[in-house]
């Protein structure tokens, strides 16, 4: 399968995450540490962080690794209350199913869907489709 090339924005994110693993003391260190803490919650994320610049060491392409960490970043943003982006053109290089996962995660979080948005994002990444039976919009009125 031909994977799209990695975008500069995602490379920056990935680079920042890699630096965070090395304990660099900068003004953004706290945020990177938060990324690391929040994102090293599974084997793949930990592997990516331990092998900066070598996604193949984790059985991933550069694009897949960047996408994985982009999802993790969104989880951290959620924890920090950062606003979600609506325009996902920055993810144009990602496969459509990944973009859909990220968009759905964004909607899940912003509109307070039922279920754990983060768990559903992880599930979506595994099965390439959002688990609507686990995370779905709530009704405003009944």
């Amino acid at each position: 399968m031909q994977w799209p090339s990695i975008t500069p924005g995602l490379l920056c994110l990935w680079g920042a995450l890699s630096l965070g693993c090395s304990g660099s003391a900068t003004s953004a260190a706290g945020r990177r540490d938060a990324y690391a803490l929040a994102t090293c919650a599974d084997t793949v994320t930990c592997c990516i962080q331990r092998n900066p610049g070598m996604p193949e060491a984790c059985g991933l392409t550069a694009s897949e690794a960047a996408s994985h960490m982009a999802g993790a970043k969104m989880a951290v943003d959620a924890a920090e209350g950062a606003p979600a982006e609506w325009d996902d053109s920055h993810n144009a290089a990602l496969p459509e199913w990944r973009r859909r996962c990220i968009r759905a995660y964004d909607d899940c979080r912003e509109y307070g869907w039922s279920g754990s948005c983060y768990d559903c994002l992880r599930s979506c990444e595994g099965q390439q489709s959002w688990p609507e039976d686990q995370c779905s919009p709530r009704r405003k009125k009944r």
């Binding site: 609506w86 968009r103 912003e110 489709s129 609507e132």
Partner: peptide, 21 residues
Amino acid sequence: RITEGSNRLMDALHRMYRHQK
């Protein structure tokens, strides 16, 4: 049906929210 329906619904919900906004 589970997969295609979810994809269709997620896309439509996302557009719906954008229209609402």
